[in-house]
Design a protein around this nucleic acid. Structure first.
Lengths: 247, 247
DNA sequence: GCTCATGCTGCACTGAGTGTCATGGCATCC
DNA sequence: GGATGCCATGACACTCAGTGCAGCATGAGC
């Protein structure tokens, strides 16, 4: 009855069987106390088959990150120059959150595992690093020509990943009860406030002649005036007036 | 003749002998092509002694990070509330750079190794992660009470680490020829411009009553006034005057 | 029925990492 | 000076992750 007609479905269930067996044992007796032989014994398959589906014991804990990374890469490659770069990478980060939110129970279990097993933490870091590199590469392309383009790309990518993880972890700590999307949106919104569009102005420590009276196409848009603290007051006022006159 | 009188010196040179032997073999025939038995054979010691000095084969590639991490932790713990938080973590990051710059040739060799051996890259990521956590913990303490304090701490820590690594890597790519300090200073300066002190104001879209006329203890210090773009001009001026009056 | 391909299994092997015990130097104490 | 205890090292055996290889099943195509 299980017609294997549809193309992308009906893959061999051995992968899922191995993941299920592995997590049962990991939760029961711990990751390091579980050998690969234990896993394949419980799954009822040969030991060699395990390493056919997972290149290492750690990989069975993160069975879907490879797919998600491919999705993110495709998402970034698809977006042309019509999107604002920082917003684009924030949206890309939300793809990762979506993957976590699809299986809250699984994600929470995995979070507890990675929190206490150093080897898994290291593995997770290498996964996160690949996400961050994907974001940074995209931003480097978008920032090409800007002064310190690669530096800004790296910094923004790191900030986005940190914010995403901050929101994600607070959701995971709540055992997947709260609203994952809201937590991450809030965190990413913070980063967008700091870097989105105004980052250019904030990085240049001189009076910024942006027309303040212009119509507010983005209500959250801000104008930044920066000066050295010892600037004479009359100069601040004069530069302000000059900026206002440009309107 | 080698009087072992001084307390902190004359430690067993076996550690250094193992590092030297390991690196000779790593650069000669590659990291994965070198077994621990090869290393101890070249160093002329027993295999068990290797794991007495290094908990894993990877650790021999990063023999001084543990010490550097301890230094950073101490540095952050020593600094009271009199230092500006973002500047403080930037200075802490410079401790890592100093460690790299002490042995340029060694650092460049290690860089080439970690660049092409995935296992070493993963290990390095876990080391960097511990630095980042140290910075973030410090910042969380300094940002306590601020809205989104932990989020800001995580984001700033990630940005500082990313900037530091950006500068460090560009120096390593130049085979340690250029000025490492200048590269990292430039990168960290970028982050300080974005987050330093003004981060609070930039993140909160309201007038920030920082006393502008105060003496400039730091000539690079900046004051940021942020407001929504559709704020009436008279309100901007009034808030400015009010801020100035606080001096 | 034969064959070829594919996927699974068992087996043997390498190499990292650990526990345990014996040895041998070295300082101390009597 | 000799006995004692400590500590660093070394030697051996063991577990377990990961890999290469060879055999064996099943299922499709001719």
């Amino acid at each position: 009855m299980s017609s294997s007609s549809a193309a992308p479905a009906a893959k061999p269930p051995m992968r899922e069987a191995l993941v299920a067996a592995a997590f049962r044992l990991f939760v029961e007796r711990g990751y390091e106390q579980t050998t690969v032989d234990d896993i394949v014994a419980l799954a009822g398959v040969g030991r060699r088959s395990f390493f056919r589906y997972f290149p290492s014991k750690e990989d069975v804990v993160f069975p879907d990150h490879e797919r998600c990374l491919a999705e993110m890469t495709a998402f970034l490659a698809a977006g042309g120059a019509e999107h604002e770069p920082v917003r684009r990478v924030c949206d890309a980060a939300r793809l990762v959150l979506r993957m976590y939110a699809e299986n809250p129970a699984f994600s929470v279990q995995r979070y507890r595992l990675t929190k206490q097993v150093p080897g898994l933490r290291a593995y997770e870091l290498s996964v996160v690093w690949r996400y961050e590199r994907a974001l940074a590469e995209y931003l480097r392309g978008r920032f090409v020509g800007l002064p310190d383009g690669t530096l800004r790309a790296d910094v923004v990518a790191a900030a986005v990943v940190a914010a995403h993880n901050n929101g994600l972890r607070s959701w995971l700590r709540s055992d997947g009860e709260g609203d994952a999307g809201a937590a991450v949106d809030h965190a990413l919104g913070h980063v967008q406030k700091v870097f989105g569009r105004s980052a250019t102005a904030a990085a240049a420590p001189r009076v910024n002649p942006v027309p303040i009276g212009a119509p507010a196409e983005d209500p959250d848009d801000v104008v930044v005036l920066a000066c050295r603290r010892d600037t004479p007051l009359w100069r601040v006022v004069r530069e302000l007036e000059r900026a206002f006159d440009r309107t």
